[in-house]
Amino acid sequence: MRETKEMSAFDIIGPIMIGPSSSHTAGAVFLGQIARAVLGQKPIRVEINLHGSFAKTAKGHGTDKALIGGLLNLSANNERIKKSFGLAKEEGLNYQFNTVDLGDVHPNSVQFSLWSEDKEAHVMGASLGGGAIEINNVQGRQVKFNGDYATLLIFGKNQPGTTNDVTGALVSNKINIAYMRVERLRHHKEAVMVFETDEPIPERGTKAIRALSWVEWVCQIDKIKR
C-alpha cells in the first residue's frame, strides 16, 4: 500500500488568499500578525529587516505590504492589504524597511522590531512556503513555533517546579496542551517555555501564570486564521 497524506478537499481547492504567492503574501501577513501579538498592542513604530529572497523580491511580491498588513491585524485574505501603506499612515504606524544579511537562515526570513508607547518587541521568523511560517526568535530568545496552535510564551527564572506551575494553570482552565518545549538559557538561569494549546487560553489563565513569582514575561498568541 502506498502511504497517503491526510488531506482536506480544501487544501487542494484553497486557501482563499491575496496574491501573488502564499509564501510571500499570506506567510508574510501571518508573520506580521504574530509580531504584533508579541507586542500585545497596536505598534506606533516598526523596523523590518528583510533577508535573502524576502529582501530581493519584497516589492515585486508585495511582501512589504503584506508584512505591514499583518502588523495592522488585517486577515490574510483582506484585499486592503494592497493598500496597507496608506492604512498604516492613517493608523499612525511609522515603518522602515532595511535589507540585512542574517546569515545562515531560511531565505524568506524577516526580523521585526516594534514599539508602542511603553513596550517593545523583537521577533524573527520565516515564511516556509504555502503560507506556512516559523517563528524562531522572540525578545532575543531562541524559540520555535508555527502559529498552527494558540501559543503561550513564558520567560522566567529557572527553578524547580516551573513546568508544573504552568501545566497546572492550564489544566485548571481546561486547556489541552498540544505541544510544549522548555529550555534553560543563560547558564541555566532562565527558563524559556513554549506551550501550544488547542484552544486559546482565557484571560484568567494567563493572569494566573503572570502572577507566578518566577515568571518575568508572558505573551499569548492566537492561532493563525487560515
Partner: peptide, 9 residues
C-alpha cells in the same frame, strides 16, 4: 499578480 483575492487551485 495585482494582490487581489483568489482561490489557490
Amino acid at each position: 499578480a495585482g494582490m487581489g483575492c483568489i482561490v489557490a487551485t
